[in-house]
Design a binder for these strands. Structure first.
Lengths: 200, 200
DNA sequence: TTTGATTCAGAACGATCATTCTGATATCAA
DNA sequence: TTGATATCAGAATGATCGTTCTGAATCAAA
């Protein structure tokens, strides 16, 4: 049992998250993490076992801290595209407060940089994308009028399209400094989806 | 003037391109590049001046070798969404031949990994995205019926949506081994766009 | 063949990487 | 206070990084 616990494992994770989020895995050195967390190397290795495990802990923390609070509304049984729009707005305004161009999405960044070469990260990324797809599908179903225009397969594909767009959007948020552009793109996209699933 | 030129600068670039494309900038060491090109360090530094400049040369080579051949059809004055679909199909089938999950898009990868921390790469990424947007806008205009439903601003935003989707799609191609999923997603997306710009 | 420039393979370099280790310091039970 | 333990700051370690350098091999022109 620890005698002193000035820095908890969760605090450590919270402070490291920002650095991994912004710089990715390879460009985040242990020195950087020591500086940004204020913890000693000993503490980091004691808490996680290594840089990689620390990264995975930050991944999980990101989902709990950033993804879930904004996305649970999409997963509600009665959610529609309005909740999807709220989810996008929440993430865009958060990015604006932090400053654009921003770090984008921790998961999307990991998907391109780390996941292709690391099965652990790949599994977590796919789990995240599956969650997004399920939530989007839920909203699409509720939005679709009773007289379905689209088959179940088409609806599922559309949910996948939403996931693809989402990943592209957070990628864009690493480059643009214009939050309103992200907002307008999202609105156009959702308008397009809405027209697609509405009755002709 | 060189006495011996077994390996030209272009050959060097071609061979390094694959490694940077798959592994990104940070995870591609000089040792890796020496091995994958078959050239000496001396040759690499003589031809480019450093790892970073070599990366930029590969970036340009990627555009000439991969992007332009598939995208010029979208930039033709009479191009429509059919050419856009052909562009996607060309890239997806190329990825399938190379093997999925694949390296995705060199530019999209660089956009998340390198561009936020390097102004040179950022400029090239933005240039690429601007080119895509212009081409997509061209196709959207030609596809739109004479009695416009959408304003010029909306059409431009839609072109931006296409760019966002594109980046998300190539990101997905780094994770999935199912080319038909990419195809189906693209088809659904383009169907959605088509319905959006068609008369009601 | 001799010469002089060029490319070669690979060693050398200083910096930095992730990881481990070492005393000194701080904390708590007694 | 004392003694045991946990955390501290930072040095040590071996590996690897990007870059430069060295001497041998290779070439075209004399």
């Amino acid at each position: 049992m620890p005698r002193k616990a000035n820095i908890t494992t969760q605090n450590l994770t919270d402070r490291a998250l920002g650095h991994f989020w912004e710089n990715g895995f390879h460009a985040s050195s242990l020195d950087d993490l020591v500086k940004s967390t204020g913890a000693t190397r000993h503490a980091i290795y004691g808490a996680f076992g290594g840089k990689k495990q620390m990264f995975l802990a930050c991944f999980q923390r990101y989902q709990d801290l950033v993804v879930s609070p904004a996305f649970t509304q999409v997963e509600q049984p009665d959610a529609t595209l309005e909740q999807v729009a709220n989810y996008f707005e929440a993430q865009i305004s958060r990015a604006e407060e932090t400053g654009l161009p921003g770090p984008g999405c921790f998961v999307a960044n990991s998907a391109t940089e780390v996941a292709p070469h690391d099965t652990d990260v790949l599994a977590k990324v796919e789990e995240h994308n599956a969650r997004l797809k399920l939530g989007f599908l839920n909203a699409l179903r509720n939005e679709t009028p009773a007289t379905h225009q689209l088959s179940a397969e088409e609806l599922e594909l559309l949910a996948g399209v939403l996931v693809v767009f989402t990943n592209g959007l957070w990628s864009t948020s690493r480059l643009t400094q214009d939050g309103d552009f992200l907002r307008a793109s999202t609105r156009q996209f959702l308008e397009t989806i809405r027209k697609r699933i509405s009755a002709p």
